[in-house]
Design a protein around this nucleic acid. Structure first.
Lengths: 214, 214
DNA sequence: ACCTGAACACCGTTCAAGT
DNA sequence: ACCTGAACACCGTTCAAGT
């Protein structure tokens, strides 16, 4: 179920000719480039259009407003991260909790770091309403995948799986964000991975979360 | 050492007469009101000035630009949260780790929830550059207070205190933010407190963080 | 010392006119 | 079917003129 905001921010018309498909892609790429080179403050519709080699009018034929441009970029980025997480969840089902956490943490951190520059630029924009709804969607998908994973862990009480998934996700997301925003020096990445694993594992194996009947 | 950004966003002139002190406060309060009632998108300088009962020109006499308005609000809010955290850290020195975590988590969640509406509105604005620098400052102060606290815990290896403080802070901040953004239903607040305590405690008492020589 | 508000620059968005 | 770009509305910011 797409939210109202998402509907508003979707592409205005679907391109039917090859020419316009190329135009849409050019505008999307131009948005990424302007975002990374000029920053969100100087990202104007005219600048994006110019970079894409079209006029403003053309831009507005495919994206209903400026927010939609950033929404498109944010959307793809978040989707890639969530999909990486979902894959990791699939792959680590029925494994020991320690392995699960390690697999999930590494997948998440890798995905965020893969486009570190985009991640950072996008953190500054979450402002727009679209981002709020989108972030909520992604959190939902992420916690669902994690819940499903935790349900296959023999060590964990099933009734705790859902909330534990929420805690794991916000921990990974929060810590990775803080690290990126503080410049993410090389050594810190390694340490962050380690400590996220330690924290997640010890949390899940704590008497309150772990399955007492097993 | 104040950052360049902060210098730019500080009040432009200090009021010397009683009249202007009142004006500055009126503008500040007007900013909070417009932010909460109209949202960040509709917060215009003219609207804030009108709400404060002054002209735009007057507003710009005390705040160098629109960002400075939001910066002032964000700044006070974050300061209150950090100070609450610092107080909790002071008060729980040399206690068992379980009590430390409980005290710190409750202080943090209480402070964020005390002005829940402002917290939420401000999350949407962190966009502005000022917020980035300010957020970094607050993270620094918070982790320093937490580091000092953890150094007084007999159970914890001193060499791990600093990074552990970073992990604790991002976990609390991330989880609280996610909860607020997802509407923070009544029951969830209680559960979040519990799980933050469980997570923090089990992390700090894990063999990797705990002092093996004690 | 403080305040006013018209004027300016710039940006998001539209739409009549083109190919 | 797609593109153009001048025109419009609106907002942030300034500054000469007021008290």
């Amino acid at each position: 179920m797409p939210t109202a905001v998402q509907a508003t921010l979707k592409s205005r018309k679907s391109p039917v000719q090859a020419r316009s498909t190329a135009t849409v892609e050019a505008i999307f790429e131009a948005t990424v480039q302007v975002l990374l080179q000029s920053g969100p403050e100087r990202l104007t519709t005219i600048r994006v259009a110019a970079r894409a080699g079209v006029s403003v009018g053309t831009l507005y034929q495919y994206y209903p407003n400026k927010q939609a441009l950033l929404f498109a970029v944010l959307s793809r980025h978040l989707r890639l991260v969530v999909e990486a997480l979902e894959r990791a969840c699939e792959e680590h089902q029925y494994r020991p909790v320690g392995e699960m956490i390690e697999g999930v943490v590494n997948a998440f951190v890798d995905a965020k770091l893969a486009r570190q520059d985009i991640s950072l630029a996008l953190y500054r924009i979450a402002a727009g309403l679209g981002a709020d709804a989108l972030g909520a969607d992604m959190r939902k998908r992420s916690t669902q995948a994690l819940t499903a994973l935790l349900r296959t862990a023999s060590e964990i009480s099933p009734s705790q799986a859902e909330f534990a998934a929420f805690m794991l996700w916000t921990t990974m997301a929060g810590a990775t964000r803080a690290m990126l925003e503080s410049g993410s020096p090389a050594g810190m990445v390694r340490r962050l991975r380690q400590h996220l694993v330690i924290m997640g594992r010890s949390y899940l194996m704590s008497p309150e979360i772990a399955n007492r009947t097993t």
